[in-house]
C-alpha cells in the first residue's frame, strides 16, 4: 500500500489496490463517488490524461464494471479505476467536464451497454449503429446468433467443420479410419 492508495482509501473509500505492473495499478471505488475520485486524481494526484474508458458486463454479479484508464505522463505511471454500477439501473455521473473526450466514450457506452450518463453531450444520439432497434448489443444477455437468424437472410447449405479433424480426413484419409 502506497501513499496514493491510503489517500484514496481514506478520502473516498477506495479498496482493492492491485499493482498490475511496476507502473500500472488498479483500484476500485463506489460508482457514486466516481466524479470526486476523478477530480482528485486529475488535479491533486497528477493523473492528467484519460486514456480511455470502457465498461464490462459482469452479469454474474448483476453489475456493469466501468473502467477508467488514467495516465500520469510526468511520473510515467498509469492507474485504472474500476467502479461497479447496478445492472438494473445503470446511471453514472458524467466526467465530460473533467476530460472533454469523455463524452465520446460515454456516448459509446450508452449505445452499446445502455449505461446512462445524465448531462453528457449528445449522449442519446446513435454512435456507430444506424437505426438500431434491438437491445444494447454488448450486453451479455443479448443473443447475437438469434438476432442474426431472425433478421438476416441465410444461404442454405452452410456447414461448419472442425478444422483439425477436417484437414486430417482430407490430407490423411487412411489414418482417419
Amino acid at each position: 500500500m502506497n501513499e496514493l492508495a491510503k489517500e484514496l482509501a481514506g478520502r473516498y473509500g477506495a479498496r482493492g489496490w492491485h499493482d498490475i505492473r511496476k507502473d500500472l495499478a488498479s483500484v476500485e471505488v463506489d460508482a457514486i463517488r466516481i466524479r470526486d475520485v476523478m477530480a482528485y486524481l486529475r488535479d491533486e494526484a497528477g493523473y492528467g490524461h484519460l486514456s480511455f474508458m470502457t465498461a464490462i458486463d459482469n452479469i454474474e454479479r448483476g453489475a456493469f464494471t466501468l473502467s477508467y484508464a488514467l495516465r500520469d505522463h510526468d511520473a510515467r505511471r498509469g492507474l485504472i479505476v474500476h467502479a461497479d454500477v447496478d445492472r438494473a439501473e445503470p446511471t453514472v455521473d458524467s466526467i465530460h467536464l473533467l476530460w472533454g473526450q469523455a463524452w465520446t466514450y460515454q456516448r459509446e457506452m450508452r449505445e452499446w451497454f445502455g449505461i446512462d450518463f445524465p448531462g453528457s453531450p449528445r449522449v442519446d444520439e446513435e454512435f456507430v449503429l444506424e437505426g438500431w432497434e434491438g437491445p444494447p448489443m454488448m450486453r451479455r444477455d443479448f443473443d447475437s446468433l438469434a438476432y442474426s437468424d431472425a433478421t438476416y437472410a441465410e444461404r442454405p447449405g452452410r456447414v461448419t467443420h472442425d478444422p483439425a479433424s477436417h484437414m486430417r480426413e482430407k490430407l490423411y484419409p487412411e489414418a482417419a479410419q
Partner: peptide, 16 residues
C-alpha cells in the same frame, strides 16, 4: 458476401 463467413452470427452484418 456468400453466406456470412466468419460473421455468420453477427448482430450487424448481412449474410448474403
Amino acid at each position: 458476401t456468400i453466406n456470412g463467413g466468419m460473421y455468420w452470427d453477427s448482430y450487424n452484418t448481412i449474410k448474403r
